[in-house]
Amino acid sequence: MIKVDNVYKRFGVKTVLNGVSLDVRSGETLVIIGSSGVGKSILLKNIIGLVKPDSGFIKVDGVDITNCSLRELHETRRKIGYVFQESALFDSLNIFENVAFGLKNLTSLSESEIKQRAKQCLAMVGLENVEHLNPSGLSGGMKKRVGLARAIAYQPEYILYDEPTTGLDPIMSDVINDLIINLKKYLHVTSIVVTHDMNSAYKIADRIMMLYGGNIIFNGTPEEVCNTKNEYVKQFVRGSSQ
């Protein structure tokens, strides 16, 4: 279980997170929506310990990652996969080495098992025979899928997705949506998904939260989002400029 309690984060004079609190229950998929620059990605980076909040605490399975030893932070990160917005693939490694990177560092699998698992994960995101290519030889959408394969390869309990379907064509977006659903269904993976894509949000979410002005202004099921009286949420999900 992930618990975020009263987290504040400021950059210079700009307050990005203004006392955010949320719980993510085991096995659920929480989708966080909100306009660009509202702090969704920063919230995810706080949860995995890449950014330290100014105040408040974040607990992952009871470990307060804002105030724990490096070893505890390392152990906690083993449980979390992270899909980066811009893929963040390692330029100096080929696709196979990228996907196998976490497996080599975080698991005790043999070389042949790592090879097999990496191939499996690439196949799950619809990529085959690309293992030998370099990231520079892939399209943006393909890089995104390799990033996803890398995050799921070591079978983490939690996966944090930062805009997983942005830049993908509608069919591939749906493949990724199905993958997120299947990871939850068969492996009971708990997911936090940051997205603007409302079709994706409705399909994969157990709960949808909206971040606005550094706070959570809405928390409910996809059905509740459709029937909300909150004007800003209604405007956002309709994609209306007024």
């Binding site: 980076k45 995995i48 310990g49 890449l50 390392h74 990160r77 083993r78 979390i80 996969g81 992270y82 980066f84 917005q85 811009e86 963040a88 693939l89 390692f90 330029d91 100096s92 990177f101 976490g102 560092n105 975080l106 890398r150």
Partner: peptide
Amino acid sequence: AEIGTMEVTEQLDALYTLGT
């Protein structure tokens, strides 16, 4: 240039998340 590019493209963050 190499490490700086890795920093601005979040590859250093990716290293942390992959236990390195």
